[in-house]
Design a protein around this nucleic acid. Structure first.
Lengths: 217, 217, 217, 217
DNA sequence: AATGAATGAGCGTTCATTCAT
DNA sequence: GATGAATGAACGCTCATTCAT
């Protein structure tokens, strides 16, 4: 998927223009998303993921060091992608409110397209404290920083009220989106309904954030 | 809360007065919170919980059917307690904004006092999709209903803007509180800092919710 | 059962003619027969036997050293009773063929009256090699001796053919009775059908044993 | 017996010729016979069987679903083999008495060669009523049918007395052989002595079965 | 004597990971 | 690289037995 992040696949001679391998790594990751979403990380068997990916059990270990690293890579992969797009969206919108709205809609929009991923990110990823503490921290901090920066920028520009801590707002924003995505993923999962909810959450937060005397539209 | 027999305890003779034992179930639950918080549900060993509770491994099975049921009971117990207090807090505040603020502060206040519990509730509880789907559903739905009802009541009273779906607001509120609690639990965990964050979240949501032309204070 | 009302079970000074205690020991043994028959020795729980006997788990250990000893005592008890009656029956019939017939009918007759016991004796008793080798040996050898002696006596008296080893005949007789009882116990268990089978087995063996030129009737 | 794939083995690639492995299932079964015979089914540990078979504990579960199924497969395997040979022996002897003698000698002959197996079949197999009732029933019924049919055929041919129920005779025969084998297996276990006993049992039953006026030789 | 809550040793089974082919 | 049979460490749970009351 995507052009950029090929990560460290297996060694290939050279050239082999279009897509030499790496195909398998992706198939495994996609299979993992599906299986993790259905049964949860711990209840998922490596052999199930292998079967779903159409490879042998052992093959998985040619691409990932362990089952843990599979979850880890999944998160890393998706998070990097999300952060990239968020930064692009932010750059495209100079005004704080527009920017915030764009970012929120981007985030839920991505999940709406991939329900299984939403379930993995919002539910399974919290499997272990250890995981969250040791691994996810870096990308997650990056994510919170991005959000907090957007808020702080808006405050400096006088677009957002200045009496709220940008970090607290960022955490609340993350949580609200996560909660909405989670309840959606656990429910029926109609993509459109998540998009509608997304617009309302944006509305709610923007109204909560704007400085008195500023129109949010 | 509640005076009498909680759920399915162990068989008790007759009488009731002296309350000789019965604390064992509680000791186990409290030990479970502690251990789950430190290592996560799956990485926690039943024997560790037993040691932490000061009982033998087998004793745990006199009070809980399985390790799973331990998590389940934990959630049930705490959730019932939370819901009771939330209803009480709601009843004590007739005006929508006050009511909402009281409920939010209650929820984060409870977690601020018991950091381990916060970690279990916000992190470990999402261990498995199966758990969330099959078990937690009932109490969680009750929780969301309560929040949504508060919002809807406020809307009918003209205190809250009417163009947002109460259910979406409830989900966002839950998520925001959960996200703030999670990031707090994963961090240093100073109770006071969670209370301060709580006040800001309330501020943010109330401002976002109030009808134009209404003062939120 | 047995004596009378017995009432209290605690130790009495002396006298107390009919049956001071021991009532409980018997209740436990009878409960054990029932439970062992239904589920097999290993699958039977001490607590089930206790419940069936109407006593507490711990009480069983006041009368028996262990679960093993329960089986052991059961076998001993019943075997002693059987051997006593067999000796009496043998003494009452001077002629070899009559004696053999009487003994066979006695044995299957006892089991026919107590189907559960038949199941325990024929099926469960063979639980472990250790059990058979270390414990049952004594009484079982006594049983085989009794049978072999009857055959040998008959041979000396010219009533039975002399070209068969009395010990082999005894083993075959035991086996035949045991096999018939087992297939019966595993089936419907109509007492009358076991008695009919018993008569045929006696007929078969007597005809097989009699010296040529002797009428078996 | 049989050349090809026995029952449910593990997945084999394709080919068939070289028979590279596949001996593992057999090695495990043989180890199980040995261990069960020495300690009884319940006292035997899966890990002991694994060690005796020279495989890892987990390997056993690649070939058998559970420890129970190990016993079950053992019985099934051996029983199928016995029944095949019994049918062959029966077919080779047209006259009732010869046929019966041949079958009896075959059965004890097989056990004489494999003392451990004799112990498992006669002793351990009766471990649980459940086992006997639910599983062994089919093959055991087949066995009894075969014996009963031989008797009934002989009766129709006028070779055996007609006043005995073929089914009762079959049960007695089974029991006699089983009892003789059991007492032998629990004792010293000299193969020759079991063969001698076998001949005497045949003699005893044939004499008991023949119609008056028929020579059994 | 009787109770039954508590104990904790012990075991069947699972499953991530390895490695010979 | 790819395979999947084999491995064996690790753990939840059971249940015979004990002992304070």
């Amino acid at each position: 998927m995507s052009g950029g992040a090929t990560a460290a696949s297996k060694p290939r001679k050279r050239e082999d223009a279009p897509r030499p391998a790496g195909d398998k790594r992706d198939r495994i990751l996609r299979a993992a998303v599906k299986v993790f979403a259905r049964k949860g990380f711990y209840a998922s068997r490596v052999s199930e993921i292998a079967r779903a990916a159409g490879v042998a059990d052992g093959t998985i270990y040619l691409y990932f060091k362990s089952k843990d690293e599979l979850l880890t890579s999944l998160f890393e992969d998706r998070m990097v992608r999300l952060l990239e797009r968020m930064r692009a969206a932010a750059a495209a919108h100079p005004r704080g409110p527009d920017r915030l709205r764009a970012v929120l809609e981007l985030q839920l929009g991505l999940l709406a397209e991939e329900r299984d991923l939403a379930e993995v990110i919002t539910v399974n990823l919290r499997q272990s404290t250890r995981f969250l503490k040791q691994f996810a921290t870096r990308r997650f901090a990056e994510y919170l920083d991005l959000m907090a920066t957007m808020v702080a920028d808006g405050q400096r520009a006088g677009e957002f009220r200045a009496d709220l801590s940008p970090r607290v707002v960022a955490r609340a924003l993350f949580g609200a989106l996560d909660g909405v995505a989670m309840t959606w993923a656990l429910g029926n999962g109609d993509p459109e309904s998540l998009r509608r909810a997304s617009a309302q959450v944006a509305e709610l937060f923007l109204r909560g954030l704007v400085s008195p005397g500023t129109s949010s539209a």
